[in-house]
């Protein structure tokens, strides 16, 4: 039958099975990767040996946790991580609140609201975070009577809130105009319109860039060590000051930050999946 023949011809030809040449085989690609990683490791280890540095990795676990008299005792790094987590947690909440407020102000009809939000963004985005933290600590802290932990939370949130505000604003603007008009035509108030129509559609769009902001918040939280909040970085600096284990401690601390953000990224990916379906 000609129709049948045409249908058969319209199907794409089966893909050629990988292989033939040995450099196309999977085992060769795995080998390539192993050689590459091995070379990198070899380079790092030989470099470390030649430095003449006295590596003392065996001392590190005790700074994370140790078992004494059958009891688990958390070391300074673990306690520091807990402070970092707490600091980040509060900062994320405050960042989102500040970001949402800034975004809504910039989208509002109020002239002064828009100016306020715009100048907040410009000031925060154009000055170094380190200097902002000092200003918060030395100027705002005493005025508001905040302790150093909350100064850290506030400074981080104000900094990241500016970026979160832009993300949230972009997400809201990405919702099609017809949605606003349909909601307004039903007689929804502005607040109801945002709550029931706009934000449920905008939030899935915001999640990926907001994850980036949370990760940058975790990394930037290290800067609060300059005002002596006992976070992971401060604890690390203290240990190094006593023991001179600079390389081991900094590598460990970097690995802890990395593990933390990787877990968070994985969680965010799952969340995006759930929200978008």
């Amino acid at each position: 039958m000609p129709a049948n023949a045409a249908a058969r011809r319209s199907r794409p030809p089966p893909r050629e099975v990988r292989g033939g040449r040995f450099w196309n085989r999977p085992w060769f690609e795995v080998l390539q990767f192993a050689v590459f990683v091995g070379a990198l490791l070899g380079l790092a280890v030989s470099g470390a040996m030649r430095m003449g540095y006295n590596w003392q990795w065996y001392r590190i676990p005790a700074y994370i946790a140790e078992i004494a008299d059958g009891e688990l005792i958390w070391g300074p790094l673990a306690r520091g991580l807990l402070v970092t987590l707490e600091l980040t947690g509060w900062s994320v909440l405050l960042t989102l609140a500040i970001g949402l407020t800034a975004a809504l102000l910039r989208l509002s009809d109020s002239f002064s609201g828009r100016i306020l939000a715009k100048s907040y963004l410009e000031v925060v985005r154009s000055t170094p975070l380190l200097i902002q933290i000092y200003l918060f600590y030395f100027v705002l802290g005493p005025i508001l009577g905040l302790d150093r932990f909350w100064v850290g939370v506030l400074a981080l949130s104000v900094f990241e809130g500016a970026f979160a505000g832009e993300v949230i604003r972009a997400g809201i603007l990405a919702v099609r105009r017809g949605q606003w008009e349909a909601g307004a035509s039903l007689g929804l108030t502005r607040i109801e319109l945002y709550r029931s129509v706009i934000l449920p559609q905008a939030i899935p769009l915001m999640l990926p860039p907001l994850t980036g902001i949370v990760i940058s918040l975790i990394r930037n939280s290290a800067i609060v060590s300059v005002i002596a909040v006992f976070d992971l970085t401060t604890e690390a600096r203290n240990i190094i000051a006593e023991t001179f284990l600079s390389f081991e401690i900094w590598i460990t601390v970097a690995a802890i930050y990395l593990a933390f953000t990787v877990v968070l990224s994985a969680f965010a990916t799952r969340l995006e999946h759930r929200v978008s379906t």
């Binding site: 017809g178 949605q179 008009e181 349909a182 307004a184 039903l186 007689g187 129509v197 559609q201």
Partner: peptide, 15 residues
């Protein structure tokens, strides 16, 4: 607005 119904060309249902 609650007393005026509006139907749009692009439907504008809430997806």
């Amino acid at each position: 607005r609650r007393e005026i119904g509006m139907v749009f060309q692009e439907f504008n249902l809430f997806p």
